[in-house]
Amino acid sequence: MPASGYIGRFAPTPSGFLHFGSLLAAVASYLDARHQGGTWLVRMEDLDTPRNLPGAAAHILHTLQTYGLHWDGEVLYQSERLDFYQHTIEQWLDSDLAYYCNCPRREIIAHDGVYPGTCRTRRLRFAPDHAVRIRVDDRPLSFVDRLQGQVSQSLESSCGDFIIRRRDGIVAYQLAVVMDDIAQGVTNIVRGADLLDSTPRQLWLYHLLQQPAPRYLHVPLIMRRDGEKLSKRLGSTPLEADQAAETLFRALRLLLPAVPDELRRALVDEQLAWAVEHWCPDSLPATRQILDPTTLQG
């Protein structure tokens, strides 16, 4: 562990190449770690193998390096850790903290997205097409986000017992991300505000695993004027290596106040060095979304 005690991470999904929206999340995470003299890890969230794009993981790593975002240690691939997740799932099934479920999606939709607990007492046995759900209760789960402030949610009323292994056998994001963050000693998580509402589910899993939760910083999503996430449509275009300095400068202008114009002509390492020194997440608006200034022209 670094002297600062700070361990952060960036965890892309290789279902596509790195685009501008995901670059913003990576840069924010990197700056927060380096500003505090901490370690910055990269983890590939590649569990959903049918959606993984061939070559995407390698392209993401190459792009991060091109943009000066050099990580510490080896890259962890979730697809190589299936036994690790499955061991905990089996323990929770044996202790009745989790149970098998064969409810169709339409039943959850009929209850406004909140699972009604249909299979809670059915004692279903294993079948290849059964999901696994974790039991929740009505206690409020709260945390103070470093930017967004107090967040509180009751899982029983907001989502109900949630899935930790899907019907197709794929381990759910909520479980894998928590187990890997614990295993890697992650202390601080910086990510997009679209994941803010899923954080209480992760807090519940930290509680069951008897581990402390990290500190969270959810940065606003950059939206187009038409209300679409920047990661969609034009924003999903793969980043180009020969435009790294220009694109990084644009990202820094969105994440930091008063970025000097002369930094536009600097190399990516020089831009990042300036940004690490001047990183101040408190200067970001405490909202979930902000408009991309480039879409406000005209």
Rank of each mutant, 00 (worst) to 15 (best):
T63M: 01
A58C: 00
T63W: 03
D72E: 15
I60A: 07
H62P: 04
G55N: 06
L31G: 12
D72L: 12
R81E: 10
V42C: 00
G68R: 04
T63N: 07
A33Y: 04
V42D: 00
L47F: 03
A33C: 15
L64I: 05
E80I: 14
G37I: 09
L61I: 02
V75W: 00
D48W: 06
G68Y: 04
R81M: 11
H59D: 13
L76A: 13
H62F: 07
H62E: 15
L31M: 05
L31D: 02
H59T: 13
D48A: 09
D46R: 06
H70Y: 07
Y30R: 04
G55F: 02
L31Q: 04
H35P: 01
L69T: 11
T49A: 13
R43H: 00
T39E: 14
Y67D: 05
Q36S: 06
H70R: 12
E45L: 01
H70Q: 14
L41F: 11
M44G: 04
L47Q: 05
L82G: 08
L61N: 08
L61V: 05
A56H: 04
A58L: 07
R43F: 08
S79R: 09
T66H: 07
D72A: 12
G55H: 02
G37A: 06
L41W: 00
L82T: 11
A57G: 09
G37D: 01
D32S: 07
S79P: 04
T66V: 15
P54Q: 06
Q78M: 08
D48Q: 05
G73T: 13
E80A: 12
L41Y: 01
Q78T: 14
L69H: 12
A33P: 15
W71Y: 15
Y77F: 13
S79W: 02
M44L: 12
Y77A: 09
D46W: 03
T66K: 10
T39S: 15
Y77H: 11
A58Q: 10
A57M: 08
P54S: 10
E74G: 01
T49H: 10
L61F: 06
G73H: 09
N52M: 04
M44N: 03
R81G: 08
L53W: 00
S79K: 08
V75H: 01
L53M: 02
R81T: 08
L69P: 13
D48T: 03
A56L: 07
Q65T: 10
G55C: 00
Q36C: 14
R43W: 02
E80M: 14
G73L: 12
H59P: 05
P50S: 03
P54L: 03
A56N: 09
H70A: 08
V75G: 07
T39V: 14
R51D: 05
V75M: 01
L31C: 03
E74C: 07
M44H: 00
M44P: 02
L82I: 12
E45H: 04
V42R: 00
H35I: 03
P50C: 09
D72I: 11
T49C: 01
H59G: 14
T63F: 01
W71K: 09
T63E: 09
A58E: 14
L82K: 01
L76N: 12
A33E: 11
E80K: 14
G38M: 02
G68N: 10
L82S: 10
R43G: 01
L53Q: 12
E74V: 06
